[in-house]
Amino acid sequence: MRIGILSVAHLHAEGYQANLKAVPGVELIGFSHENPEEGRPFSERFGLRWFSTHQELLAQRLDGVVICSENARHRELVELGADAGCQILCEKPIETTLANAQAMKNVCDKNGVRFMTAFPTRFSSPTQALRTMVQQGELGKVFGVNGINHSENPSGHRAWFANKELAGGGAAVDHIVHLADFFRWCFSAEVIEVYAEIDNLFYPNELDVDTAGLLLITMSNGIQASIDCSWSRPTLYPRWGHLKIEVIGEKGAAVVDSFAQHLTVYAKSGARNPEWIGFGPDANQPMIQEFVNSIREQREPSVTWNDGYQALRVVLAAYESAQRKEPVQLEH
């Protein structure tokens, strides 16, 4: 199977290229990236063939593409990939506007290709175990849920994360989708109300996007949940941040810390000091495997375009709520 990566603007491209190489039967043909100053070093670092235009890569008779561009360029690359007949795995959030997200769906339908949204939280073993507990009723009636996906400011690694045009916003667009999607999946329900306080509280002088956000959401089955999407970890924090989920139920409570498996390392050479070096399983690997399996088996992937679309709706509702200072309802 022939796979290519369209753009490596997103940091996750570094992990995905290794994940793709690790899947038996997958041939990672290379990646396309228009900026040579970024494309060339990426090529050298990972021993991958670099294509300076997306069209050149797409001319390589690919079966599937992984799209790792800036958020606001997803539509353009999805259209190119779908028109070339490639199955699509698209980085989250799927786009920055509903209209662009819808256009992506249309072009995939027109070309008969399938679209998978990259939500690795669905493939992480502790979150999967949590979902099983919830779905088997082990926690009883759910009283409330807390989702924490707070991190450092990612624009220190990739500047476009704090570019409103390219990213569609800041912390809210960066982090909400993971938890919004997980809650939809875990509780088999849609988000019907969003209340949010969103602001640029951490980098008021350096950045002009939102860097802090707290959401209270209500699901269609009545479950209440909070989401913390803030870029609230200092740059000297021992890791980029956290993904934690707490479900408090009538029969018991469960607390997931997805990256709890880490070593604390104190080293003069460390990028951070101390630094938490993870040793848990990489959730991206089974996610990439699912993309490959869905192509092989010619079936819909387990995470769909609609999953990406519904998560994006929550982000946009959060921005609207923060602006209106009121809860915003979502129709389904």
């Binding site: 009283f143 409330g144 707290l214 209440q224 909070s226």
Partner: peptide, 14 residues
Amino acid sequence: TQADSGAAQYVQVV
């Protein structure tokens, strides 16, 4: 959110 019966309850405030 409250329990269907009894006093158990949980509140989140922003």
